[in-house]
Every structure is written in C-alpha cells, then in structure tokens.
Write a protein that binds this DNA or RNA. Structure first.
Length: 564
RNA sequence: AGCCUCAUGGUGUAAUGGUAACACACCUCCCUUUGGAGGAGGUAUUUCAGGUUCGAAUCCUGGUGAGGCUGCCA
C-alpha cells in the first residue's frame, strides 16, 4: 500500500461516532449501539429533524444496532394524533425503519410514577405548594442562588400522601408540583429543585383521562431512554445544561434498567428559512403559507411536495456534517443535492411556461412530424420518445428579444436558433396586438437542418425548447422562490416575521403549454423541463387539471449574467 | 453578571502534535442540439496574545467574540 492509499483509508469521523467508537472500545453497553428519535407530536417534522433522524438511524445501521421511534408525549395540551400520523409518514418516507420499536413516553407513565415514589421515599423529591410566580422567585437568577422552598422539609410520609392525592385529582390544576430535591444554589438552573410532575387536567391523545398529573420532559426523557436501553441519546445543544439532571435521575433512581449517554450536537439551520416549530406554526396559522406541506415550507412534507427526494435530503444532511458549532448552512447546498439527484434520474421533457406563438411560415399546413427526443442524456437506458412538431408552436417569451442584447443567443429578428430536436429556424417577422404585445413570431425553417440529419451541420449559438400548439396540453405551473427576503429571519429582531416574507415566493402560471407526453403525469412524478428546471406533479394535480411545482430551477448562467 | 458550550476560506465541514483539505457558493476559460450536465483553472482560511515543543489549527494560560440557561414547554 502506498502513502496515498493509506491516506484515503483515514475516514473522517464526526465527534459523535468518535465517542461511540471509544465507548465500544471500552466495552460499554456490551458492544451494543441503540439510538432513537424522540419527536414531540406537536407539529410537523422539518429538515432539521430529518438530519437528526438520519443521524440516529444511520448510526444504528453502521454499528449493526437498533433504532427506536419514540413520541415524547408528556404535554397533552399541545399534542395531537394528527401530528403523530404525519411524523410516522415522514420518517418512513425518509427510508427509516423502526421495525417493531414504536414507543410513546406515555407508555411509561406508570413506571415513571413508581420512580417518582422511589425518589420521594429516598428523600429526594417533595411536593411543593409554591405557585408559578413564587417558584420563579424562589428559583433565583443564574448569578444568584435561589431560596429553599418552605415545603422542602415535608416528611416522606406526607409527601407520599400528597403525591398520591395529586394523582387522584384531589387538587386543582397547578396547585402543587412534585419537585426533585437537588441544589437551590446550583449555577445550573436545571438543578434548582426542578419540577417533576405538574397537575394538568388535559385529555391525552393516548392515555385519555387516566392521568391528571403529567411528568416533565426532564423526568421522562432519560428514563424512557433507559427503559428502551438506548445507549447513545443524541439531542441538540440546548439540552447541554440538562445533561447533569439527565444523569442525576439515572444515578438516583433505584434499579434503572440501563445507563444511556446523552450527546448534544448543533441543530441544522438554513439561510432564508425559519426552523422553529413555533414560527412554522405561525406561518400556517396566519396563512402566509397553505398549510404545513406548502412547498415553500422547510417541513419534510413541504419538501416532498416541492419535489425533493429522500435521497437528496440524505445526501444533503450528510454534507452538512455533525458538530457542536452553531451555524447557518446555505440553501444552495440543499438545491445542489436535489439537482444532482434529479439530473441523473429525471425524465426530460419540453414545457413552455410563458408561451408566445411561433408560426413557421414555410412549413406545410397540415404536416405533423414525430421527432425523436432523448429522455435523459445522463442515462441512455431511459430511452427516447416522440415529440410532435407542426407549423404552429409555442416558445418561451423570454427566448425572444425584439432588440437583442449582444450576448443573447436565442431568437430575434433576422437571427437563427435551433429548435430542440427539430430544425433551425430564422425569425422573419412579428405580429403585435393592439397593446403592442407580441402576438405571433414568424419564422422560416431550413428543412436541411433537421435534428440528426447528416447534413444538418449548420451551427447556431442557441437552442430553445418549444411545444406544438395543436398538440400542447395545458397545465398550471407553480414557481417557488425563497419564503423570506432576510437571510436570517430568526436573527432579525427589529422586524416581525411577516414583514420579512418574500412577496414573490409563489408565482402561479395558469396558461402553460406542455408536450403531450405529460398527459398522464401522476402526482409525485418528477421531470426536468429542459432549460427551465425540475418539476414535481403536485398532490392536488388531476388528469383534467395538471399542476406542476417547480422544485428548483436549472443553474442559469444567462440569468446570472443578466442580474449583473 | 454566574455557569455551560463553541471559535478553520463567503457558507458548512476535515486535518486526532508533522505539507491546512473537501463540498457548496463565487470568478475565468473549454465543451455543448438544455446558457443544463461535464472538463480545466482561479480567488479565499486557522479569533487574538502569550506559553510548551525541533514542530501547534490541534496541548496550556489569559483575552475577545458567538450561542445556550433564569416554563408547572420540549
């Protein structure tokens, strides 16, 4: 083996996999790796969750371990079955298989209750009557220690009775909490006697009205991990300060099934995007978008509807890496991942989004030629198709300039251009309507230049796409652009979210003309409209009313040049 | 302010005491019946100050900057 080869063998490992490698080397968890994804069913999953899901699942697969899906449903007020369903659908769509390991934190409510009693018996938890305002006051601030709750000295017996009465519904909502007895002077606020249980008469999506007390996240999460024998509990940075508490429960509750290890990494952020569930919910509720799966949303369902594939998301997420540094990834990286995927897989097709009519004046009136077109130049096995050509065509408005820019090499008066898969045509005239708008472009074609003909060697600068007018099918096309004009909408503290919206994030074009090949396109089908971009057939598309969503445009150096 | 965490091109991540690299973005050029794809090249990086060392992005000390924590949310 030479030097170069040995260098290539050094696979770069992120810090989480490095930790797992070390744990394995030390013989921890008897060599097992078991991860989980713990969503709260209070909203739809977004691409940041996709990163976490794929990270956790990917690790479980790489190490020959297992992966659980567990709903963190400890706050019934915000949680709904609708979200449970959408989350499962999205996780599955990402290609992630939890096999028979679908769990709910609410499955563990009885066990959690028993463990709370265990802590009370050990003198490590107490029932507290402080109201929220008082509790806040007693907690103190980070720079100053808090004060001991006056209820901290209740006897074990009294605490046991009170806690039982809490469970039995003998106190009104919010009247009491069960708290851990840790350290009111800790610089880590999470350790200042955190609440374990609160009284809340809310209907739970799974346990119904069985409980009127519910465990807090901190009291449920680590223990749930332990019950499921999770070895590495991967979460985001904001839980760093919770880790001592996470470990405290594992250490102080008797006979915990296993000792999971919490590891935190930086969540994914994208520029021109908001990623918090609260803000996403706000966009939905204030109707700035059409629901959670609006193609402008960074939700998994939105991205799917937009036309992203799960493979492209997986590739993207891997490219963003895993680290502890907070940063903002550019959306161009996401766009690159879908272009790469679709470039090699998507069926090519011609579609005119902003049509203007072209008449080939020297072309026979009733002749229709079936021209051969390549389905995907990147993949010969995708074959070829026939495209009808006739005297009247539609081309893209922007492919014609009456007074052309010197670097514009498309159609303009007196100039020649190649019609993709067809002939070279020259523009010979124009017809304008009463408003001065171009109604018809007149061209003459050169029969010798038919595509594929041996003597069609004439060179022209540009090639444009077209659709035969009498064969064209109508469709609606939705052009999407970034939802926000601010590259960091969440970081903008001066303006409301609604003031940062891009007014042109959605452009609906009703009168688009597509080649007949697309007649039977089904929702979810993906195409490249040559020279325009990648398009996904929308969820609401029907045979009579075809709707295409633009996933992403093609890279366009002409458009870029024009901007300058 | 106290505690925790982080700091490498424009962006995101590598380099695990030994030549600072990869991807995206940006810019040139070539090629092209998609101004796509592809190819060739280019601009640009270790937060600062000390220290340890033959050698520091990496280890130590201090500074600076950024993020997190002060819910009976997760």
């Amino acid at each position: 083996m030479n030097n170069e080869e040995s260098k290539n063998e050094v696979i770069s490992r992120d810090f989480i996999r490095t930790i797992i490698d070390e744990d394995l080397k030390e013989g921890k968890n008897s060599g097992k790796v078991h991860t989980r994804f713990p969503p709260e069913p209070n909203g739809y999953l977004h691409i940041g969750h996709a990163k976490s899901i794929l990270l956790n699942y990917g690790i479980s697969q790489e190490y020959g371990g297992k992966f659980n899906l567990r709903f963190d449903d400890t706050n019934p007020e915000k949680e709904e079955t609708e979200y449970v369903d959408s989350i499962m659908e999205d996780v599955k769509w990402l290609g992630v298989d939890w096999e028979d390991r679908l769990f709910f934190a609410s499955d563990y409510f009885d066990q959690l209750y028993a463990w709370a009693i265990n802590l009370i018996e050990k003198g490590l938890a107490y029932v507290c009557d402080l109201n929220p305002a008082e509790m806040r006051e007693y907690r103190g601030i980070p720079t100053e220690p808090g004060k001991l709750s006056p209820f901290r000295s209740r006897s074990v017996k009294e605490n046991l009775e009170l806690f039982e009465k809490m469970k039995n519904g003998e106190f009104p909502d919010g009247a009491k909490t069960l708290r851990a007895m840790i350290d009111m002077t800790s610089p880590n606020m999470n350790l200042r006697d955190p609440a374990l249980y609160r009284i809340k008469r809310a209907h739970h999506h799974r346990t119904g009205d069985k409980w009127c007390i519910y465990p807090m996240y901190d009291f449920a999460h680590g223990q749930s991990d332990s019950i499921e024998c999770i070895t590495h509990s991967i979460c985001t940075l904001e839980f760093e300060n919770h880790r001592p508490l996470y470990n405290w429960f594992i250490e102080h509750i008797d006979n915990m099934p296993s000792k999971p290890r919490q590891i935190e990494f930086a969540r994914l952020n994208l520029d021109y995007t908001v990623m918090s569930k609260r803000k996403l919910l706000q966009l939905v509720q204030e109707n700035h978008v059409n629901g959670w799966d609006d193609p402008r949303m960074p939700t998994i369902s939105g991205l799917r509807r937009r036309g992203y594939t799960s493979l492209s998301l997986k590739n993207f997420v891997e490219k963003t890496g895993v680290a502890k540094r907070n940063g903002i990834t550019e959306v161009t990286l996401l766009e690159d991942s879908i272009r790469k995927d679709l470039n090699s897989h998507a069926q090519r097709v011609m579609g005119v989004v902003n049509p203007v009519k072209v008449i080939i004046t020297n072309y026979p009136e009733d002749l229709v030629e079936e021209l051969e077109a390549v389905n995907n130049p990147e993949d010969e096995t995708m074959g070829k198709r026939k495209v009808p050509f006739s005297k009247e065509l539609y081309i893209e408005k922007e492919d014609f300039q009456e007074v052309p820019h010197k670097k514009f090499h498309r159609l303009s008066p007196g100039k020649e251009v190649r019609l993709r898969y067809a002939y070279i045509v020259m523009c010979t005239g124009l017809v304008k309507d009463d408003n001065g708008e171009i109604a018809e472009i007149h061209c003459e074609y050169d029969p010798e230049t038919k595509s594929g003909l041996s003597n069609s060697g004439k060179k022209v600068k540009g090639t444009i796409h077209w659709v035969s007018a009498k064969h064209a099918i109508d469709a609606e096309v939705r052009l999407y652009d970034r939802l926000f004009i601010d590259s960091d909408p969440s970081g903008n503290k001066e303006k409301e979210l609604s003031e940062l919206l891009n007014p042109k994030s959605l452009e609906v074009l009703e009168n688009c003309k597509l080649e007949p090949f697309l007649k039977n396109a089904k929702s979810g089908d993906k195409f490249q409209f040559e020279r325009r971009g990648y398009f996904n057939v929308d969820l609401d598309s029907t045979e009579d009313n075809l709707i295409f969503n633009r996933t992403v445009s093609l890279k366009d150096s002409w458009a870029k040049f024009n901007k300058k």
